[in-house]
């Protein structure tokens, strides 16, 4: 996935030398893009916030602290944090093995890493349910537990850290490690003092992306979690239930909380990106 943001690059003055040429072309293009974005994204999201706030701050607060909603939000954030941490470690490890190790089948493994991105979430959920359901062939039954929620989220967030760390590791100057070795650093010192500091911005960016995805996740959790309120019901599933029972005001309030959380994470990712760029 391409999560990169547009880099600032100088463009010659009066630069409209493409399909949308000239100043008028720019204005027309911006206008059309704005209308499209507004109709599809901005107005609908604004409507969610509007609806969520329609009962005043008290009403908003009551909606998200209703016991079942609050439990769902807590579970979502908690499970997402666990998932983010596991991804931080395992994602980095997988990227490491894919870049620095070589063994037969590595190419296929590298390809498989993207499968969770391509696989529909409901299929991901079904697939996990087949392995970790009540008649689990490996004898591990997770269905209807919080562990199941975590496993489902781990599945769908697998590529994030791997795919942000992998390119950085590939481009990491091997001569830095050789220079450190010639200066007397052993393998563990080289990893700690040279490799890790250079990977950390990418590791954190990938982890934040994984966290954002986990907080928003719906499809993969639906089947395997059982959606038991107060136990395995995550926020997105809770919102879905509220919509189904026509309680759109409460659904909008909880959605607003999720939106704010997502925007904060996007902001964090942007800052991390700048931090990484400043040092690179």
């Amino acid at each position: 996935m391409n999560e990169a943001t547009v880099k600032e690059k100088p463009v010659a003055a009066g630069a409209g030398r493409s399909l949308l040429s000239g100043r008028g072309g720019t204005a027309l293009g911006v206008g059309m893009a704005t209308v499209f974005l507004s109709a599809v994204v901005l107005i609908p999201l604004a409507a969610v916030v509007w609806k969520g706030a329609s009962q005043g701050p008290g009403g908003f607060w009551d909606a998200i602290t209703a016991p079942d909603a609050w439990a769902a939000l807590k579970l979502t954030v908690g499970a997402s944090l666990v998932v983010a941490l596991v991804n931080l470690v395992m994602g980095t490890l997988i990227a490491w093995v894919l870049v620095r190790d070589s063994f037969p089948g590595k190419g296929v493994l590298d390809l498989l890493i993207d499968l969770p991105f391509a696989l529909p979430t409901i299929v991901a959920g079904l697939v996990l349910l087949t392995l970790y359901g009540t008649d689990s062939p490996v004898g591990v039954t997770l269905v209807y537990t919080r562990a199941a929620v975590v496993v489902a989220l781990l599945f769908v967030t697998l590529p994030f850290v791997v795919r942000t760390v992998q390119p950085v590791l590939l481009e990491l100057d091997r001569e830095m490690e050789q220079a450190a070795a010639s200066l007397g650093a052993g393998p563990s010192t080289i990893f700690r003092r040279i490799i890790l500091p250079n990977l950390i911005p990418a590791m954190l960016t990938g982890t934040a992306l994984a966290f954002a995805r986990a907080v928003a996740e719906f499809g993969s959790v639906v089947l395997i979690s059982g959606n038991v309120p107060f136990k395995t019901q995550v926020a997105a599933v809770h919102v879905f239930g509220r919509i189904e029972s026509d309680d759109t005001a409460a659904a909008a309030a909880i959605s607003t909380a999720l939106l704010v959380l997502s925007l904060l994470i996007l902001l964090a990712i942007d800052l991390l990106g700048r931090w990484g760029a400043r040092r690179g």
Partner: peptide, 27 residues
Amino acid sequence: RHRFPGRRLLNALIDVPLAVSPVVVGL
């Protein structure tokens, strides 16, 4: 290819759907 007021905002807004829960999109 173009520089215009609000370019950074447009750039940021395009990424917003990545961070929005599908259920919230539906709502």
